[in-house]
C-alpha cells in the first residue's frame, strides 16, 4: 500500500508539473522527483519481497494493510513538507526578500 500511495502521489505531482505554467517557479519537478525516487526504491523492495513470498505477499492482514496505508499517507505528507521547505529556502518569488527589505 505504501508503494501504491507513493506512486499515485508521484503521478499526481507529475501531472501538476506538466499542466502548470509556473512549474519552475514552484519547483514542481523537485516534488515529483522526490516521489518517483521513493517509488523506485520501494518498487525494488517489493520485487525482492515478492521473489521471496510469491503470491503470499498479497495475503496480508487488514491491520497490516491499514498500517501500510497510514504510512503511505504520512510519507506523502513528509514529501510535501520537504518540498515546502525547499521552496521557502529558495524563495523563487522573493517573498522573504521583499518582506525583510521593508
Amino acid at each position: 500500500m505504501t508503494l501504491l500511495i507513493t506512486v499515485i502521489a508521484a503521478i499526481a505531482a507529475t501531472v501538476v508539473w506538466y499542466a502548470n505554467e509556473n512549474r519552475d517557479t514552484y519547483r514542481l519537478g523537485t516534488l515529483s522527483l522526490i516521489y518517483w525516487g521513493a517509488s523506485l526504491m520501494w518498487l525494488m523492495d517489493f520485487v525482492f519481497e515478492y521473489a521471496e513470498l510469491k503470491a503470499e505477499y498479497f495475503n496480508q492482514e487488514f491491520a497490516d494493510i491499514l498500517n501500510d496505508s497510514l504510512l503511505g499517507v504520512a510519507v506523502v505528507a513528509l514529501g510535501l513538507v520537504a518540498w515546502l521547505i525547499i521552496l521557502l529556502i529558495k524563495d523563487p518569488k522573493g517573498v522573504f526578500k521583499k518582506k525583510f527589505a521593508k
Binding site: 522527483l33 522526490i34 516521489y35 525516487g37 523506485l40 520501494w42 504520512a74 513528509l78
Partner: peptide
C-alpha cells in the same frame, strides 16, 4: 540536480519508513 532529487527524496522517505 534531477538525480539528487530522486536520491535524496527516496532516502528521506525510506528513512522515515524505517523509523516507522
Amino acid at each position: 540536480g534531477w538525480l539528487l532529487a530522486l536520491l535524496w527524496g527516496g532516502v528521506l522517505l525510506l528513512a522515515f519508513e524505517h523509523f516507522w
